[in-house]
Amino acid sequence: MEDIIEVENLTKKFGHFTAVDNVSFKVKKGEIFGFLGPNGAGKSTTIRMLTTLLRPTSGRARIAGYDLEAQQDQVRRYIGLVAEKIILYDRLTADENLQFFGRLNNLKPAVIKERSDRWLRRLGMEEWRNHQVGTYSTGMKQRINVVRALLTEPDILFLDEPTLGLDPQTSRLIRDFIAEVNETGATVILTTHDMHEAETLSDRVAIIDCGKIITLDTTENLKKMVKNISNPTFEDVFLTLTGNTVRDIASSRITSASRRWHGRPTNRVR
């Protein structure tokens, strides 16, 4: 399989703080690639760089064969993004939002209509399409938000913690939908701090902490790394990979790591 994303030594510094530290990886065409890590690990920063929203401090990346820095406009034609914050206008209806973002991507109104019809029906949002987004629940907003990201039928779909703060039913619906979209050929890059989500969706997972990729492998292989636990979960994997090595140095680090793991960013609620 060819690599649709190639990342080489990507680094992002905010002042003296290094949020993403010399990260390299490749994503194969058609796979679901998971980025698993606690809050503040650098997942969103990586996604923002790969979607042209942040300028890398150093390093390079090729997206769909185009250079991330030199060919931003071409890169933008191949990607869709579900970011940390929901990209929808509260005072516009779902339809108006979709038309607006579709038109910015040079889609004809009829094409936008046809695609959104299909996906709104799939996600059970058809009857809400003419209501202002501000009146929706978070779960409803996120469903429209996913449709928006898919309007161009992008080759690569970036999802930054797409199920964060959603009720279990909607999370399930969105995960299933992501899998379906992937079936049709789209490459998916997904970040999450939910180990179950990473496990069920991803073909390969990169575990990232403190801006560094600690491990990158298939979910199967990652589980095999934990030999001493029968039927290991992803949490065991993470603890083995990060916690155990640190545990020898200072036990307090673990508690802070696991707290970060379970903590939720507060800026998500709108």
Binding site: T52, L53, L81, A83, F101, L104, N105, R148
Partner: peptide
């Protein structure tokens, strides 16, 4: 961000 990632 939604506007910025559009190829415009």
């Amino acid at each position: 961000d939604g506007i910025l990632i559009s190829p415009i």
